[in-house]
């Protein structure tokens, strides 16, 4: 399995170096930076630093800028991971290499592991750039519990990976990347507490956030960065994330397997 993962890692890195997906990378960085800018403009210039009373109550902090900037950065990170992993099989399909991969006795686990490991480099880069820009615009990092933040970040990658498997099977099902991914991303941005705390949403919409790994991941990450919470303090969120990951993993593995068969049939049918 690791053998296949390594080969896939090397292959993707080579492709990346030869035809760097700058548009995606810059796109992710830009959308993160725009969220930073929006938060900065709105907070300083439009609302002159005045917050709603409930905000501090919902978030245990009155640091809106850190809240919003981390939201933007983490959202960009989630989108990037989801895209890189979920698009891999459908890209093979479009480029005509899917059959060649499916012909081999290699394990799909290894293939995806290689993919996710390779894309980690890119997302880490994107995330760092956004956080760096965020720091210029008022993100406070002085209380950060670095180790728990890093751990939450890594665990989140796992959670997004599991969700990406489901997204990937949906893409193969619809034979589409554009509509599927962007609809999910629009909903994610709305219900996961990216730019505003979830309790502001109408109650009937709030459960939607519960099924997005982004919501608990972001919540835990903010606590670690803004309040310097240790890892055990965010264990409820981590359990929530683990449960979601498990569910997505089961559905995703089943879905990908099912879709591989379906796709092969529909190419020649």
């Amino acid at each position: 399995m690791f053998h296949v993962a390594k080969a896939t890692f090397i292959r993707n890195t080579r492709v990346m170096i030869r035809a760097y997906p700058w548009s995606f990378v810059i796109g992710h960085i830009f959308s993160g930076v725009y969220t930073v800018l929006f938060a900065f403009f709105a907070y300083h210039y439009v609302f002159a630093g005045q917050l709603d009373e409930n905000f501090a109550h919902f978030t245990d902090s009155s640091d809106y800028l850190s809240y919003a900037i981390l939201g933007g950065a983490f959202y960009a990170f989630a989108v990037s991971t989801l895209m890189n992993v979920s698009r891999s099989l459908i890209t093979e399909l479009r480029e005509g290499t899917l059959e060649a991969v499916l012909l081999t006795p290699s394990l799909r686990r290894g293939y995806f592991l290689g993919n996710v490991a390779q894309q980690l480099m890119r997302t880490l880069f994107e995330f760092s750039v956004i956080v760096f820009v965020g720091a210029l615009f008022g993100l406070t990092l002085s209380h950060t519990n670095v180790w728990s933040a890093v751990l939450v970040w890594i665990l989140s990658t796992g959670a997004f990976f599991c969700q990406a498997l489901v997204l990937g099977s949906l893409m193969l099902w619809f034979r589409d990347t554009y509509i599927t991914q962007n609809t999910l991303f629009a909903v994610m941005a709305f219900v996961s507490g990216v730019t505003f705390p979830i309790p502001y949403l109408p109650e009937w919409l709030q459960p939607l956030g519960l099924i997005m790994p982004l919501a608990p991941a972001l919540d835990a990450f903010r606590q670690c960065v803004i309040q310097g919470a240790p890892l055990h303090a965010v264990s409820p969120q981590l359990f929530h994330m683990a449960a979601l990951s498990l569910v997505y993993l089961v559905i995703g593995v089943w879905g990908i397997r099912k879709m591989e068969k379906r796709v092969m049939e529909s190419i020649f049918g």
């Binding site: 709105a42 609302f47 005045q50 709603d52 009373e53 809240y67 629009a186 909903v187 941005a189 705390p197």
Partner: peptide, 19 residues
């Protein structure tokens, strides 16, 4: 679909501020 979701998200993005 997307503009409507984005519009609603934008509206709620003002929620943390004093209105």
């Amino acid at each position: 679909v997307w503009p409507v979701i984005n519009f609603v998200t934008a509206y709620y993005s003002f929620a943390p501020f004093r209105m």
